[in-house]
Write a protein that binds this DNA or RNA. Structure first.
Length: 430
RNA sequence: CGGGGCGUGGCGCAGCCUGGUAGCGCGCUUGUUUUGGGUACAAGAGGCCCCCGGUUCGAAUCCGGGCGCCCCGACCA
């Protein structure tokens, strides 16, 4: 993409409404614009990040055997009356009336809807288990939206639902999801720690929240340093991995167990702040029973399926990743979620040699490259590239270009290399 | 929902107390400059001063009401 032809409106100064780092940087790097309190438009670069994150989530859900589908954002109030949550949910739910005075709502979550869908089609125990997910916009009318996309009212979420014949099956689904989540976050270049959690609104008795460590996190977290050694991508055994994740102490302040905490050797105790980026629940028959979803069992008796739900805050992750990975100059994108792998900085726009090298790099990098072909001063190009946080910057100036050399800079470390065009490309793409 | 604050060109702000139809920096446009880490020179464009009403000869400024946004607290992916 050519920067001169892109809508990536960077800002030199921070808009007054943005207080925390990720929000400031998302506005300054031209990723989002606020359209109303807690409601954001995703501009081209921000949308690329959002899509990359959603795709990693998608790939890991697919790999775990979860089926993708798509449910609507607007739901019927009647559906929620079946579970009794229409009255229970309170003002967080955005309620809408259509032209026929029918009561609708903008979905804050989808347990009722998925239960109704599966109920309508699944009649026999032979059709279970089922695991389904979608990635869809949700709306929760938060009393106080803040921190940019970290606590928006409208947000993109992956939510998955499992249906099993018995609790043992549901627990298998739960453990599978734990591994899928840890793989997902690891691939995004962040460390998320699963912590024992309250089941809250949704109900149930087994739940973990996944927290990304960041000083600006909303939750206080306590964990054993042994966590830093986990590698979900290298783990192929669900049971072993789950065991490993849940025997090491980790809890949010809500579930903090001081007695257990004090058994951990002092040098391994870690306290900090966390941003919740996902949560998994096992809640049994809560919805299958209230919404009368039963299947015929092998002996002809009715069985109410055991359910679980599993969420990942896709849009929240954009902010969370930035909170966990930035410096004074701007964002430092992990490679897997960066809007562009590399920025190509032409320091002498109009110079035949630099123009040619840049055009060549641009063509070879394709969608992975952002070509800064504007007639700006070099200083501005460098500063904006740092702000936007591309993992690599390929700097093409007339001095090096005369010898076929470019400078390659790694954003995360500040390392610089003088390389040939081919070597630079190999490093960026490799 | 309780407490606090803000709303003035695209962004950041001053002006408001002590009414006289608006100013600064950045950005933007044009020309010059050919530039190696947001820092050159010159000229220029751009404002329903959030909205409605009131006071006044006159309102960005004073008064009333409304809307929007932010921060702290209680609540949540």
């Amino acid at each position: 993409m050519r920067l001169s032809q892109s809508l990536i409106p960077t800002l030199k100064e921070t808009p007054a409404e943005a207080q925390i780092a990720s929000h400031r940087l998302m506005l300054r790097a031209g990723l989002v614009r606020q359209m109303a309190s807690g409601i954001y438009a995703w501009l081209p670069a921000g949308h690329r990040v959002l899509s990359k994150i959603a795709n990693i989530v998608r790939e890991e859900q697919d790999a775990a055997g979860v089926q993708e589908m798509l449910m609507p954002t607007i739901q019927s109030a009647d559906l929620w009356r079946e579970s009794g949550r229409y009255d229970a949910y309170g003002k967080e739910m955005l309620r809408i009336t259509d032209r026929h005075e029918r009561e609708l709502l903008y979905g804050p979550t989808n347990e009722e809807m998925i239960t109704a869908i599966v109920r309508d089609s699944v009649k026999s125990y032979r059709e279970l288990p089922q695991m389904l997910y979608h990635i869809q916009w949700k709306f929760r009318d938060e009393v106080r939206p803040r921190f940019g996309v970290l606590r928006g009212r409208e947000f993109l979420m992956k939510d998955a639902y499992s249906f099993d014949l018995d609790k043992a099956g549901a627990v298998v689904a739960y453990k599978k999801m734990m591994l899928a989540y840890m793989r997902t976050f690891q691939r995004m270049g962040i460390t998320a720690i699963p912590m024992r959690a309250d089941t809250g609104q949704i109900g149930g008795d087994l739940s973990h929240e996944f927290h990304v460590l960041a000083p600006t996190g909303e939750s206080g977290v306590f964990y054993d340093a042994a966590f830093e050694t986990g590698d979900a991508l290298a783990s192929d055994n669900v049971e072993t991995f789950y065991e490993q994740m849940t025997t090491i102490y980790a809890a949010t302040d809500e579930k903090h167990d001081v007695a257990a905490w004090e058994k951990i050797p002092e040098e391994r105790r870690r306290e900090g702040r966390g941003i919740e980026v996902g949560q998994i629940f096992y809640f049994g028959k809560k919805y299958s029973e209230t919404m009368n979803f039963g299947v015929v069992g092998p002996d002809g008796n009715k069985i109410f399926p055991e359910m679980g739900s599993y969420g990942i805050g896709v849009s929240r992750l954009v902010g969370a990743i930035i909170e966990a990975s930035h410096d004074e100059a701007g964002i430092i994108w992990p490679d897997a979620v960066a809007p562009f792998r590399a920025a190509i900085l032409n320091l002498r726009q109009g110079d035949a040699t630099t123009d040619k090298i840049c055009a060549d790099l641009h063509a070879r990098l394709g969608a992975d490259g952002l070509y800064d072909d504007r007639e700006e001063r070099a200083g501005q190009k460098f500063a904006e590239a740092d702000l936007m946080g591309h993992p690599w910057q390929i700097i093409v100036g007339p001095r090096g270009a005369a010898n076929g050399q470019v400078e390659l800079k790694r954003r995360a470390t500040g390392e610089r290399f003088e390389l040939s065009v081919e070597d630079a490309l190999a490093k960026v793409l490799g």
